Simulated assay, not measured.
Amino acid sequence: MCIRDRLERRGIIRARLIVAQAALLWGRFGEAGRGLAAMGAMVKDTGYWRVADVVRIGQARLAWHTADWRGLDETLDDLATSESADATTRLEARVVQGQLDLASGARQRAEHRLRLVLAANGPRGDADPFASPNAALARMALSEGDHLGALELTEPIMSMIVRKDVWLWATEVVPVHVDALIAAGRTGEAGELVTAFAGGLAGRGAPAPAASLATSQAIVACAEGRDAEALFTEAARAWAALPRPYDELLTLERQGRFLLGTGAGARGLAVLSDAQRRLQDLGARWDADRVARLLRGYGVEVARPWRGGRKGYGDQLSPREAEIVDLLARGWTNKRIAESLQLSPRTVERHLSTAMRKAGVASRTALVMAVTSAADHPGREPT
């Protein structure tokens, strides 16, 4: 490939990255997924490794939204510690890690990571909708009854969105900000905000902000004493259609709680029982436990969830470690492995060090021999 062709293809990659990021923001996940996959292949073909981490964080964010969480924390850790990634990409990775930690029940770790990002944002302010930890931290504050703390986190972002009229950035923050306003007794203000949100989205085909709007409308209707059951159903369906299963289930939890409050106990408990089971299957233990406590308070039998923390790989190699060792066994250098897997050489070295520790060996050659031996004799421990 000549230099001119390579430069042209790199220009195409940059342009398609902008399109894919917009698709993620708007909630057009099929388009985003296809675009990111194509760009990943183009990065390899052109050797344009400078944007490889940007492609990977887009894929990681898509995996978070669509609840494809298996192995996601490992990918995010690669990105958060990558020497090749820029500061924004590393912050985005930490935000998604914090969200994943919170959902899975590692609350202290989640808060630690998210507050580090909050402090690092500093001069960046709240301008990046992908690297903002504020909505997740506000959810945590509300769970502790701290609506003032939640407002302190969300009001600057909402002010910026209103001032700049960038309602497409409001998907994550509006529902939690509306919750905080209502908890503070500012229901009228919450209603005005939701009306403005609807106006800002008028005529735009943006499924994710639209689902957020539907959720916010249902929250306000509930606070105002209106019938919100159909609105919650509409919002849950909107999230499911994206798909964003986690947000769908959180919305169904809201619907179940609303039904309990209106005296429709049987329907409410049925909605909550289904949501609790699906949250637990998803691995969202923080939320599943919260719903389980509510159900038990109504005398509903709920299976006790596994409480061992996020399941790890123990002394077994993780999928990423096994992949790297396999390439090492083929005689590949760290640099070649890094380029092939779109990692930094330092990240590859870190995975190899971890794999050597697990195998109880002190050299790369011994690691390959140990893993190969274990693969040939599945019942035998690596030596």
Rank of each mutant, 00 (worst) to 15 (best):
P378L: 11
R10S: 09
A366R: 02
L242G: 08
R70I: 09
I324K: 05
R94C: 03
V368W: 04
R94K: 09
D45K: 07
A228R: 06
S353M: 07
T347S: 14
E381C: 07
T251W: 05
D326V: 00
R257A: 06
A228I: 07
L282K: 00
G105Q: 08
A266C: 00
A198I: 04
R113M: 01
G185L: 03
R115S: 04
L249A: 04
M1R: 06
R186T: 06
K44F: 00
A275C: 07
P345E: 02
A370W: 00
D247L: 14
G30E: 14
Q316H: 13
L341H: 04
R163M: 10
R9T: 07
V302E: 06
E144Q: 14
M140G: 12
R28M: 11
A359T: 03
R336L: 13
V96P: 02
T347G: 13
R70D: 14
L250F: 02
G145A: 07
A196M: 01
G149N: 09
Q255A: 12
A41W: 09
L259F: 02
A93Y: 08
E189C: 03
G299K: 01
S212N: 04
A266Y: 04
L343E: 06
T81K: 06
A288F: 05
R304C: 04
V371Q: 12
R293N: 12
P209K: 06
A375S: 11
Q276G: 13
E323N: 07
L114I: 06
E172D: 15
T354N: 10
L250K: 05
A32N: 01
A138D: 10
P245M: 10
A375G: 03
G203S: 04
T88E: 13
A119N: 11
S132L: 15
G263E: 12
L295E: 07
V51A: 09
E321Y: 01
R9Y: 03
V325S: 02
V361D: 06
P319F: 09
H65A: 15
A52R: 02
S273E: 14
L242M: 13
W332I: 04
M1C: 00
E323M: 12
A211S: 13
A136P: 10
G40P: 11
A32T: 08
D146E: 05
Y246F: 15
L250P: 01
R34A: 14
G200I: 00
D101E: 12
V54A: 15
D376G: 05
L79Y: 09
L317A: 08
F232Q: 08
D5K: 10
Q255T: 00
E248V: 01
I12P: 04
S82C: 02
A135C: 09
L24H: 05
Q255R: 15
A170L: 03
E152S: 15
Y313L: 09
R115C: 03
P245L: 08
L327A: 12
A20V: 07
A87Y: 11
T383F: 11
A210I: 00
A359D: 08
D101S: 11
A38T: 09
A221Q: 10
D146G: 03
L343P: 05
R350T: 12
L102P: 03
W169M: 12
A190Y: 03
W286S: 15
A170N: 01
L118H: 09
S132E: 11
A150R: 00
A67N: 12
L76H: 07
